[in-house]
């Protein structure tokens, strides 16, 4: 075959494959918005569910998700950012560092349901927290750690070495250099990682099944040791466990969840592209 023609055909096939990936993403979002938007109103967002979750709103699930994600981030940020600082600023090329990197890759690869088992075994039972916000948040925090470490590491790596030298040459200590020069320069990149972590934590279901999620609990949590309803689990419940439910209600639940997750992701993408331009 004529090489020019072969190239044309090949490129068209590659383009089609790409379209095959991108179009369904758009379709999923459009379907959810079109079918879910009509059911969204203040009552849906701010009322308790009623009639076996077939009516009313999803307020406790929204609040539960916010509490859970906030607690998760609170646990994950310091450990994740410090861990990235260790890898970029302190670690030498040795066996320990190699093991740390392998461990991070594996944390990223552990199935989310296995996190659920781990959270159940360690936090719920062994430490006696019971199914609670704190147990769920700690489980999710460990799960999103690799995301925060990897993005923070990338951000720290991109700070020019010369900044560090200039600071050290002025008599600043290593930590002062990190604190006053490196971290401020890396901040947008680190924030990107944190937002991606939020988005992941808000959308996961399997790790929270046995650690925090309540099937039906029409009240708000009072302490970190309370169980809560959570959006992704609520979507699972209304789409598979409750017969004869109005489809708009289910779609609207999906819309709220996807909205939170995608807006967070969009924010991260925008932040990152602005930040990359600056460097």
């Amino acid at each position: 075959m004529n090489p020019k023609l072969a190239q044309k055909i090949a490129f068209i096939i590659l383009l089609l494959a790409t379209i095959l990936v991108i179009v369904p993403v758009g379709m999923i979002v459009v379907i959810i918005v079109v079918k879910g938007a009509p059911a969204i109103n203040w009552e849906f967002l701010l009322a308790m569910p009623s009639k076996g979750m077939r009516a009313g709103g999803i307020f406790p699930a929204i609040v539960g998700t916010i509490y859970l994600v906030a607690a998760t981030i609170l646990f994950a940020i310091p450990v994740g950012v410090f861990s990235a600082i260790y890898l970029v600023e302190y670690a030498r090329e040795n066996l320990l560092t190699r093991m740390v990197k392998l461990a991070i890759i594996n944390l990223a690869g552990v199935p989310s349901i296995v996190y659920g088992l781990f959270g159940l075994g360690l936090f719920v039972i062994f430490l006696g927290f019971g199914p609670s916000i704190i147990a769920g948040a700690l489980t999710l925090a460990i799960m999103i750690l690799p995301i925060i470490i990897t993005t923070s590491k990338e951000a720290l790596d991109s700070v020019p070495r010369s900044y560090r030298e200039a600071s050290l040459a002025l008599g600043a200590s290593k930590w002062q250099t990190i604190r006053h020069v490196v971290l401020p320069s890396a901040l947008p990149g680190i924030l990107t990682g944190i937002i991606l972590g939020i988005s992941r934590a808000a959308g996961e279901t399997a790790p929270i099944l046995f650690t925090v999620a309540a099937f039906y609990l029409p009240r708000l949590p009072r302490t970190m040791f309370d169980q809560v309803m959570v959006l992704p689990y609520h979507l699972f419940v209304v789409s598979t466990q409750i017969p004869n439910i109005k489809t708009e209600y289910t779609y609207a639940t999906a819309l709220v969840l996807v909205g939170i997750v995608l807006i967070a992701n969009l924010a991260a993408i925008i932040l990152r592209s602005k930040y990359r331009k600056k460097i």
Binding site: S162, Y163, E165, A166, S167, A169, V181, P184, S185
Partner: peptide, 10 residues
């Protein structure tokens, strides 16, 4: 120390 290239901190 003053470096080869001007290195103001950001």
């Amino acid at each position: 120390m003053v470096f080869a290239l001007p290195l103001p901190l950001p």
